[in-house]
């Protein structure tokens, strides 16, 4: 028995040591991430400064850069021991670089991104987003065996990709519009096709919940003269009827009301 106890203690101690060493590894990696981001930003900023100002960087930008760059060096030197200092230096560096980019961009007006401006449209991004949306709908459709065919839309995607690659902008925009319209129709069709199984699922869920609620309402601790109790019982009967009539939308509405009443009744017992 003593041997077992000693073995267990040994295992637990080793486990604790292993876990704490992992935390150290985490902290180390965490700090390496900070160094990577800061170094990357430093490189980008100096590239931008060299491109924009060559050898005549304005004094305020130069001093901001020096501050940021020194923080990156200090961050590097503070690794791996001084976690707090490393984090502080990271934030100082990134804030300095952020200020520099802001100062360099001040002359240009800020632009909120919209897809309405045709000249700025990134058609490839638009197509990729649309494709992601389409793939999601296709997965839903296949999962519920809706039988919807996707070959036409897939061909149109290939065509739009080709048009973008060969710089046929107008044709690509037309294809994207067609795709949007087709995907909209597909979504509608999926909703209609899955509505039957969806309503079955809701009816099944509602029936199960009604059984649970009925048990709650039968609790002898509830004051039988409570007006909420009478209304709740009446709603339970109404919902049962609605379920048998396949009236799912009304089931949901009535269930919302019933749920609120059940909460009041439950609180009255406490």
């Amino acid at each position: 028995m003593k041997a077992l106890a000693l073995f267990t203690i040994f295992v637990l101690i080793s486990g604790t040591v292993t876990v704490s060493s992992i935390s150290d590894v985490y902290a180390q990696n965490d700090l390496n991430i900070l160094l990577r981001i800061a170094t990357q930003a430093d490189k980008q900023i100096i590239n931008q400064l060299e491109k924009t100002f060559d050898d005549s960087i304005p004094f305020d930008i130069q001093s901001l850069y020096d501050k940021g760059h020194t923080s990156v060096l200090t961050l590097e030197n503070s690794l791996p021991d001084n976690i707090e200092q490393a984090r502080e230096n990271f934030l100082i560096a990134m804030k300095s670089f952020k200020q520099i980019t802001k100062m360099m961009s001040e002359s240009t007006t800020e632009q909120k991104l919209t897809t309405s401006n045709v000249s700025d449209r990134d058609l490839q991004s638009e197509l990729n987003r649309l494709n992601k949306y389409f793939q999601k709908l296709k997965t839903i459709s296949e999962k519920h065996n809706t039988g919807i065919k996707f070959s036409e839309i897939e061909e149109l995607f290939t065509q739009a990709h080709q048009q973008i690659n060969s710089n046929e902008i107008e044709s690509a925009i037309n294809s994207i519009h067609q795709l949007e319209s087709l995907i909209h129709t597909i979504k509608k069709n999926i909703s209609e096709s899955s509505s039957h199984s969806s309503s079955d699922r809701i009816k099944e869920f509602a029936s199960k919940q009604l059984n649970k609620i009925q048990k709650i309402l039968e609790d002898p601790l509830i004051d039988s003269n409570m007006p909420e109790l009478e209304r709740a019982n009446s709603l339970v009967r109404e919902i049962e009827t609605l379920i048998s009539e396949d009236n799912v939308s009304d089931v949901k509405k009535k269930f919302g009301e019933l749920n609120k009443l059940v909460k009041i009744i439950k609180n009255s017992i406490r």
Partner: peptide
Amino acid sequence: SAIVGMTNLPINM
């Protein structure tokens, strides 16, 4: 893309 400014600490990259 390259990050050139950030206001808070990342958890992971």
